[in-house]
Design a protein around this nucleic acid. Structure first.
Length: 626
DNA sequence: ATTAGGG
DNA sequence: CCCTAAT
């Protein structure tokens, strides 16, 4: 509750403080280090990340050089557009084949650090020689993390230096200085404030949440190594690169609103890029398109001022223990009091940079359009998220099930282990089960024609199942509802099911939780499900027997088990059938209905019209004489 | 909830 | 298919 409320409050009327400003002299020159979990990250992933960082800083065409050993290689020229279009930076980089990956790793590992030069990309050789190095990036790689920092920018103004500057997350929260008690364990805190963590998707929680990057490690990684690298040639205006107070205390890096906007944009790209890892590519591309509104859920992206977090569509939160206690329905002794009365030491500061959400598995014909893919994914995600979300708490990858535990008892208060803390977004189980059962739902399912477009156009989640040939199943359902099993088999065999399933191993994904209210407001139009011939036949048969005014009975008689056919649908279908029968065959569209059936439609319609007229006449006669 | 009819 | 008025 409080949890959410707090975020909400942050989202509304949030204004990035104008002050304090980062000292002018330093602005644009030093960038906070970016921490990247390397884990199983491939070296080029890291490289790409670096490149991306640079790109974000530069935001225009550039190329990246890295220095390792004695050689300098051009990694790639990277264009901003490549991010904008969401294409994989990695592939763009790697396709260049300018250096071989394994050797890169070797150098990386052995040296522990790599220097990147960031140069303006200029096409002509002359220009190139004249090109200046705009930034130096130092990258120190440990087992678990890489620290990437943009070191020196020659032309901060043009570089839009703000793009890597960070702002404090919460103007309302006092930010203890790095190195003091609060931040001692405070890798978490520093991350709150701008240490961008790119959580590489890893299935292994333990690893990904490794606690090795505590503040000690952090400082260690930077101080000794990154400082005078002799191989850093030219243009090293600032000759130092170390986690000095100013460098790390980005709380001092404030930006004007206008300055931040572009950052936000670019960080979206960051998000995209992040997810362009092999294993998660599918997911990410999918989620990327899911532009959920985040207004009413309290998780507005605007709730966080950290531009990185914000634009990565991550969540950020700084809470107190009291807050959490409330949230869990128990109040600690101080719960309910104002935070300010509680010693800051007792607060647990949390930075939620991402939630784990269930994996969505989506299979879609290759000839489906991108548009339909988007819609499909949107539907799938909406279906999962709109069902209501639970929040799970993970500590060291293990779920904390006992809601009554205090934060302290759970061990979360141990700031040293804060990095082990994770949150998950979990859909309603009941709903999911329902969705899972879709595939075995005996009721006839959408038939998706070769174009695929109609079925994917719109529709409810559980309707989005394509079957190469479901005519039979329709028939079954219509005529022999007692034998659904054959239908099931057919479905299982024929369908390319678009079935979201719960991931067996959820992977960290940054996502903006869906605003439930928004989702429910948007009542999806039912998916279009053209009547099959067998359905038409069943309809005609029933109407011949029952007439045109008893659609409920028609439904009961012929479409009892076709849940998606309402009596209104049947009535409408009859209407169109009559119309179809009256027009010339050339004007008819869709799956052709046998003329024989249309003839029966016409005659039945005529017959029952007469009957109706007759009965009304009779009724009138009954009334008149009275 | 159903029916009927326009959109 | 949707929306709605009228039952």
């Amino acid at each position: 509750m409080v949890f959410q409320k707090r975020m909400e409050s942050g989202s509304i009327g949030y204004k990035i403080p104008k002050k304090p400003r980062f000292p002018r002299s330093a602005r644009g020159k030093r960038y906070p280090p970016k921490k990247v979990e390397v884990g199983q990250m491939r070296p080029f992933d890291l490289l790409a990340t670096v490149a991306e960082e640079l790109l974000l800083a530069k935001k225009k065409s550039c190329r990246l050089l890295y220095e390792a050993e004695e050689t300098t290689s051009t990694i790639n020229k990277i264009k901003k557009e490549q991010f904008d279009t969401g294409s994989s930076l990695k592939s763009d980089v790697f396709d260049q084949g300018c250096c071989d990956e394994s050797s890169f790793v070797a150098r990386f590992v052995s040296r522990g650090q790599v220097t990147f030069n960031f140069e303006e990309h200029l096409s002509s050789p002359e220009e190139r020689t004249a090109a200046s190095t705009l930034a130096l990036v130092k990258c120190h790689v440990s087992e678990k993390n890489a620290f990437i920092g943009i070191h020196n920018l020659e032309d901060p103004v043009n570089l839009d230096a703000k793009s890597t500057a960070l702002v404090s997350s919460d103007s309302g929260v006092e930010i203890p200085p790095i190195g003091d008690h609060h931040s001692a364990g405070g890798s978490s805190f520093s991350s709150v404030r701008g240490d961008i963590e790119l959580l590489v998707n890893k299935d292994d929680d333990e690893n990904s949440l490794g606690r090795t990057h505590g503040s000690n490690r952090y400082a260690k990684a930077f101080k000794p190594h990154c400082t005078g690298d002799g191989r850093v040639r030219k243009l090293t205006k600032s000759k130092y690169w170390k986690p000095s107070r100013e460098a790390m205390d980005y709380g001092e890096l404030w930006n004007d609103d206008e300055e931040i906007k572009p950052v936000f944009r670019s960080r979206k790209l960051c998000y995209t890029r992040q997810r362009t890892k092999r294993s998660s590519f599918k997911r990410s591309k999918l989620f990327e398109r899911c532009t959920f509104s985040s207004s009413n859920r309290g998780f507005s992206s605007k709730a966080v001022s950290d531009p990185f977090v914000k634009d990565c569509m991550k969540l950020d939160y700084i809470g107190t223990r009291a807050d959490l206690s409330d949230a869990h329905g128990r109040s600690g002794s101080t719960a309910g009091h104002t935070q300010s009365y509680e010693p800051v030491e007792n607060h647990v500061k949390l930075s939620i940079k991402s939630f784990r959400v269930p994996e969505l598995f989506i299979e879609i014909p290759a000839n489906a359009t991108i548009g339909s893919l988007k819609r499909t994914v949107m539907e799938a995600v909406t279906a999962i998220l709109s069902g209501g979300l639970h929040v799970g708490v993970l500590l060291k990858g293990k779920k904390i099930k006992d809601d009554n535990k205090t934060i302290l008892q759970a061990g979360i208060s141990d700031t040293d282990k804060l990095d082990n803390l994770g949150f998950t977004l979990e859909p309603n189980l009941s709903r999911i089960q329902h969705h899972n059962s879709c595939i075995s739902d005996p009721e006839p399912l959408t038939k998706i024609h070769s174009t695929l477009a109609p079925a994917l156009d719109i529709g409810t989640f559980n309707a989005v199942i394509s079957a190469s040939d479901c005519t039979e199943s329709d028939h079954d359902s219509v005529h022999s509802p007692t034998n659904p099993s054959s239908t099931v088999d057919k479905m299982a065999n024929n369908s390319k099911a678009l079935v979201p399933i719960l991931a067996l191993n959820p992977v960290a994904l940054a996502v903006v939780p869906l605003s439930n209210s928004k989702a429910s407001e948007i009542v999806q139009r039912r998916i279009r499900r053209p009547f099959s011939v067998s359905e038409v036949e069943a309809l005609v048969l029933a109407v011949e027997k029952l007439g045109t005014g008893r659609w409920r009975d028609v439904k009961l008689r012929a479409f009892e088990n076709a849940k998606h056919r309402t009596y209104v649908d049947l009535k409408d279908k009859w209407k169109t059938l009559v119309h179809t029968a009256r027009i010339s065959p050339q004007q008819r569209r869709g799956e052709p209905v046998p003329q024989e059936l249309l003839d029966r439609v016409l005659s039945a319609h005529a017959y029952w019209s007469r009957q109706q007229a007759k009965s009304t006449r009779l009724a009138e006669q009954c009334h008149r004489p009275v």
